[in-house]
């Protein structure tokens, strides 16, 4: 089943000044349960593509469907609601809410979804267990290591039961051990929950674990390899 279907995606920044052609007609389909790494040199358009897939940015041309729904036609507020229910985000700089504990950070999106307290508690505990942070439940981000914060971020991304998870260079700020732990957790969630993961990365350790590697060069897909 197709989770993401991008057709003829073009993205031009500053169209009226000095135009920058970031994406030049990208076609990409991602199936349910794929563990995909989008790689390429700096400036190749990885982050732009991820932003468009994640509904954070709009393509200049082309269409993007997520779970069969064309999101390029949605308004800003509809996009926010769409992201809340369908997409989990993992950011390079973790981006946890500093004033909330690990548990509250994970619960946050579920609260936005108006889930019941019982459901929130159950899901939060499951996810904290899955990322191995049951003992850090009441810790704030400042009391956690980088690796632990990124594991909380993964748990948060999954809390809303999204259609897929987008991770923008998730291991860029982590040491080897934390990277390995994080990849183990994401691989396990991918296998056990059939969760779809899409990464943008430079990190060879991530690339080595991916099942599919899409290489972008100069805003175009250069290679698309399934393993």
């Amino acid at each position: 089943m197709k989770v993401i279907e991008a057709k003829g995606i073009e993205k031009i920044y500053n169209p009226n000044k000095i135009p920058v052609h970031a994406l030049k007609g990208v076609d990409l389909e991602i199936e349910q349960g794929e563990f995909t790494a989008i790689v390429g040199p700096s400036g190749s358009g990885k982050t732009t593509l991820l932003n468009i897939i994640g509904g954070l940015d709009r393509p200049s041309e082309g269409s993007i469907e997520v779970g069969g729904k064309d999101i390029s036609a949605l308004s800003d507020n509809q996009l926010i609601d769409f992201r809340k229910d369908n997409i989990g985000f993992v950011f390079q700089a973790y981006n946890l809410i500093p004033v909330l504990t690990a548990k509250e950070n994970i619960e946050f999106v579920m609260l936005l979804q108006n889930r019941s307290e019982a459901e929130r508690n159950q899901r939060t505990n499951e996810l904290l267990k899955a990322v191995g942070l049951e003992d850090k439940i009441d810790k704030r981000p400042s009391e956690l290591s980088g690796g632990q914060q990124q594991r909380v971020a993964v748990a948060r991304a999954l809390a809303s039961k999204p259609t897929f998870v987008l991770a923008d260079e998730p291991t860029a700020n982590l040491d080897s051990e934390s990277t390995s732990n994080l990849l183990d957790i994401m691989a396990k969630l991918n296998q056990e929950e059939n969760m779809t993961f899409v990464f943008s990365t430079h990190d060879q350790r991530v690339i080595d674990r991916a099942h599919r590697i899409v290489t972008l060069v100069d805003g175009k897909i250069d290679t698309d390899v399934r393993r």
């Binding site: 994640g54 954070l56 800003d76 507020n77 926010i80 609601d81 992201r83 809340k84 229910d85 985000f89 950011f91 981006n95 809410i97 500093p98 946050f108 999106v109 936005l112 979804q113 948060r156 809303s160």
Partner: peptide, 12 residues
């Protein structure tokens, strides 16, 4: 942080 909140679904 505010960008992240809107990214994950906190509406305006």
């Amino acid at each position: 942080e505010l960008g992240m909140l809107m990214s994950v679904g906190m509406n305006k």
